[in-house]
Amino acid sequence: MKTTSAELIISAAKDHQFPGGPYPEVALSGRSNVGKSSFINTLLTRKGLARTSQRPGKTQTLNFYFINDRFHFVDVPGYGYAKVSKSEREAWGRTMESYFEKREQLKGVVQLIDARHKPTVDDEMMYDWLKHHDLPVIIVATKADKISKGKWDKHIKQIREGLQVDKEDPVILFSSETAYGKDRAWKEITQLLFSKTERFPKENDEENEPS
């Protein structure tokens, strides 16, 4: 997909701050430092749009990016990082739970996993939680450039088995350094955004179809 426009429209700390409108959206979830910001920047060909940080856990809001005047990417706080207060973690949890459970515009989730390692307990818990709520998931295995090509299949299998990935959920190797996997990631994301399957069906709703 060609990106003609992309902007951060709001960093929402509470659910009442989520933008309205009919635009479909895909959430991006993953452990802190897994490469979510780099993934966003690579997909959108916008260097520096999503800020990368050397300090894990810095993202404490849901960041809504409005793309091509048609849909949102939603960067949610990274999980698995303990150096924040218990009250902060609980506040994030309540806001994200509200988002994932109630957000009608949400079509699915991109869960990013570090391809170099086995999925962590936090990765497994997040995937199980998303599937419990009947959300389609695209697994993106980041940092593929750090693994020799001859071992790619082994690492994909390791992720599929570790998460017990549903057959309908794709696992995509990705590298922000080389843009490997970018086209396939866009293909899967586009299918989620503009499929005819509504998570919360409504009568007389018109579907957003790609032009």
Score class of each variant (00 low, 15 high):
204 N>Y: 14
131 K>I: 15
125 M>V: 13
72 H>Y: 15
50 A>Q: 06
193 L>D: 11
40 I>K: 00
85 S>Q: 08
139 I>A: 01
79 Y>F: 14
87 S>I: 14
123 D>P: 02
119 P>I: 08
86 K>S: 14
183 D>M: 04
19 P>A: 08
169 D>C: 14
140 V>H: 03
35 G>K: 03
165 V>W: 12
98 S>D: 06
174 F>W: 05
10 I>K: 02
4 T>K: 15
189 I>M: 03
156 I>S: 07
83 K>M: 08
2 K>M: 11
109 V>M: 08
202 K>V: 12
21 G>I: 06
13 A>N: 08
10 I>S: 00
25 E>N: 09
18 F>A: 03
197 T>N: 10
104 E>A: 14
205 D>N: 10
30 G>R: 02
92 W>C: 07
148 S>P: 06
159 I>L: 10
164 Q>N: 14
126 M>Y: 09
9 I>Q: 03
152 W>K: 07
55 R>L: 11
168 E>I: 15
131 K>T: 15
2 K>S: 07
144 A>C: 04
183 D>Q: 07
152 W>P: 08
7 E>L: 10
56 P>N: 10
22 P>T: 06
21 G>A: 06
176 S>F: 04
184 R>G: 00
196 K>C: 01
73 F>E: 03
189 I>F: 02
146 K>Y: 04
130 L>W: 06
48 G>Y: 06
23 Y>M: 07
79 Y>G: 09
181 G>E: 02
168 E>K: 14
82 A>H: 10
161 E>R: 06
92 W>K: 15
162 G>T: 11
21 G>Y: 01
5 S>Q: 12
181 G>S: 01
9 I>S: 01
88 E>V: 10
10 I>D: 00
196 K>G: 14
69 D>S: 12
138 I>D: 00
106 L>N: 10
64 F>I: 00
177 E>F: 07
202 K>H: 14
161 E>A: 09
81 Y>S: 10
23 Y>H: 12
53 S>H: 05
48 G>N: 06
149 K>C: 02
19 P>H: 01
45 T>S: 07
188 E>K: 03
64 F>T: 01
28 L>F: 10
